[in-house]
Amino acid sequence: MNADDWLRTLTAELHQRRVAADAARHVVAEAATHLREGGGDPWVVFGPPQQYAGAVVESIGTAPGPRPGPVRLHAAGITKRYGRRSVLRDATLTVRAGQIAAVIGANGCGKSTFLRICAGLMSPDAGEVTVSGRLGYCPQSGGTADFLLADEHFVLIGAGQGVARGPARRAGRAAARQLGWEAGGDVQARHLSGGTRQKLNLTMSTLSAPDVLLLDEPYQGFDQGTYVNFWDQLSRLRDTGTAIVVVTHLLNQLDRVDIVLDLTPARETGWHAPGIQGGRP
């Protein structure tokens, strides 16, 4: 691992430990300067990035995490059958303002179905969902209009809330920029690359400033940089009090997440990890 990698890992470790962004930047910059002046292997000079990050946290403490707020989404006893096949059995999830919930499970175990039921796009056979505040939803794919420009998508979504065109366009472009994408211009959605089109898809769901955000594996086609930006943006949204539910099968980000709902039928795995809400077997 060279110095740049070490510094990058340090940045991630500090972020994960919820060190305030400004303080983290200073710490990393100072370490970088020290290494530039004195040379040496960062692993020797500072130790492993995890260890150094830990020492930093002990010294300056973390940004106080926003207390999880009131319950924003409560899904109870969600059951769904397709013919004889039972896709969801008694699935339950409670998410408060300022929390991120991940919905995981093998392919075909009903993650997308669960999310669509929570969004009110599909009716379950049993169960209830209560949502407090505005709802935003990002489907796994599609969800955009082939022949419209990105700006026109923003105007269309904005008009639903009574937002005027100019502000809607500005808000859309600002949200797009956070994902590392310049959204202006006259490229129709069908001509955008897969990853960019997904960024548009995602931006549309956050535009109306929802209180509950439901995301169905929205990062298809994202490159690594965008993927990192995506999780950064989720953290930012979480800190402003949004309740977020993300369907994912990529488990490496689960430490940035407050709740995990595993929809894999328990009789298959026979195991419920601690702290995980799940469906009854």
């Binding site: 100072e30 000079v45 020492a55 930093v56």
Partner: peptide, 14 residues
């Protein structure tokens, strides 16, 4: 080492 010194500086600053 930097790993020893900087946490001290941070604490003094805090």
């Amino acid at each position: 080492q930097g790993g020893t010194l900087y946490p001290v500086l941070l604490r003094l600053q805090k």
